[in-house]
Design a binder for these strands. Structure first.
Lengths: 312, 312
DNA sequence: CCGTCCATGTAGCGTTGCTTCATGGACGTC
DNA sequence: GACGTCCATGAAGCAACGCTACATGGACGG
């Protein structure tokens, strides 16, 4: 940036540096090319010139793909902070100009999308300069953070029995905690109860998502408390399917209270669990540089507002 | 930096932004061209493309030169923070690589240069990768800050009767406080005294630097305390000349203790002032982005070390 | 009123970096 | 063990960008 002195930036373009950072997150040249709408060759050439200009080896081949060297990892970390600073500067400029324009890519898992996206779009209708693109992404509990490489905001969930782990360089904003209730068909013997204990329901047939999904972890806790394992008869991540199966008597399930009430109340019964704090935490994850963008912040704030009624 | 989203940095190059910042500090296109070794036309074209890409007017003509618009000033401020972030990133990279290379431009006023530069060079001999360029710059008290646009480190002085004023975005590192003594010829009636009061010396012929230089301000304070104005017979910033004039009986002067003692002791007598705290503060001034460079920090640390013996 | 200074256009050139296509190595499969 | 696939990289060609050098046109001062 400055001509005199050492002037790293006379030789190295920040745009070139950015691909290194993307490579660190996406893991392969082709993935970076896909994510940035460049050709793989362009990505490769950028990396090559970067290394030539710096006189340092940053990437090395590893089998079919590439791997960052130590120096590459170090520089990618630096590139991340540059990204964040640049995004902050851009935000400052947008503040000055008044406009909050931009495209925001939001990933939600199904039930959160159902719960939050419609109201979110209503709120954002007042901000015409922001284009919100929404995507469905439901992955296992630990994989949400990785999605932040592809989206500006990732709505993630985890069972609230585990502390939020160190998630590295990802920013977290809590949205809501959603209690999990036992869903029973209308004619079920326990359907009239105001609460049920783990021991009451452990011998039922259960319908839950695959292992390592938040809802599954809670069932594990129930089984632990009841002292006997749960009998899982079907696994699916698709909540409406779970509801239909429960309604027709094919088993019972743990279902998120708000989401289910909005949709399936009347076709089945939700009974809170006694003796166990069962719930899932829903939060927004972002890479710091993306979080620094004003358009992202506006969407995030709207998301928090939208979630507020459920936040209890 | 990022392809999706609003992507200001896809349109605007940080190098282009940098010229705006330089323009804000140097004030004219030609001055920026000189400072950056580009042609004036290149500077002008960068500004033009910057405005075209942003769709905003940043500079406007003012008489023979140009003036920043409000938007231009705002963006220049942002450019400054970008510069700092980039310099910090470069420093991080240099830390990783181990080397501390670079050219550092140091401006000193004459007596500080005499006092500090020889020892500074000794200290830096151990760091072969740093090239130190030194320059003499002695300006009036308030103009030192402006020199930071042209040098990495500016050694400045001010009389210590005034509080350091808000110096905007300039970083300050104190180096030493140098007492000012009354310099008398060897045979002077007061030459044997251990201290002299303002009233003792106010009726002498005085030799001082031009107005608004630190030493002049101290004489003003002496006159105020003595209750009568000082009779100034000659003005010069050149300390050796002042010493010679004093030694030959053409008047007396206020001279910095350490500098003078190193050079002229034996040819004149230095007597401390009683009833008045007379001294000048010597400090290093830097622009934040320059201060973030490791090479600059190394030189600065050496400078502080070199000044330490006098720091009392 | 003229000379000087400053900024900005214009022409032309060099460099850079992209796309497209071809090559070559590594892995999985039949 | 050979083939197909996937991935990264090299070469050729082209387009765009930004610079230097020079010319133009206001604005200030003598």
């Amino acid at each position: 940036m400055d001509v005199r002195g050492s002037a790293l930036w006379e030789r190295v373009d920040v745009a070139h540096l950015a691909v290194l950072r993307e490579l660190a997150e996406h893991g392969s040249v082709t993935a970076v090319a896909r994510a940035t709408t460049m050709s793989p060759s362009a990505v490769s050439q950028r990396l090559a010139t970067l290394q030539r200009r710096l006189g340092v080896v940053l990437v090395e081949r590893a089998g079919r793909g590439v791997r960052l060297t130590d120096a590459g990892r170090a520089l990618a970390g630096i590139a991340a902070s540059v990204s964040t600073a640049l995004a902050a500067a851009e935000a400052e400029w947008q503040d000055y100009r008044g406009g909050v324009a931009g495209t925001v890519r939001l990933a939600t898992f199904h039930s959160a999308g159902e719960l939050l996206v419609p109201g979110l779009l209503d709120r954002l209708a007042a901000v015409p300069d922001i284009l919100l693109e929404t995507f469905d992404e439901d992955v296992s509990q630990d994989d949400f953070a990785g999605l932040t490489a592809d989206y500006d905001i990732v709505v993630a969930h985890r069972s609230d029995d585990v502390l939020a782990p160190a998630r590295g360089p990802v920013e977290v904003r809590p949205l809501l905690r959603e209690p999990l209730d036992v869903a029973l068909p209308l004619g079920h013997p326990l359907a009239g109860r105001s609460r049920v204990a783990p021991a009451d329901v452990i011998d039922e047939d259960w319908i839950v998502p695959p292992a390592e999904f938040p809802l599954d972890r809670v069932l594990t806790a129930i089984a632990a408390q009841a002292g006997s394992p749960a009998r899982v008869v079907r696994r699916t991540t698709h909540l409406p399917l779970m509801e239909k199966l429960v309604a027709r008597g094919h088993g019972i399930a743990l279902l998120p209270r708000h989401t289910t009430r909005d949709r399936a109340e009347g076709r089945l019964v939700l009974v809170p669990l006694a003796d166990l704090r069962a719930g899932r935490v829903i939060e927004a994850l972002m890479r710091p540089d993306r979080a620094a963008r004003r358009a992202v912040q506006v969407v995030l704030d709207a998301l928090v507002d939208e979630a507020a009624p459920y936040a209890a």
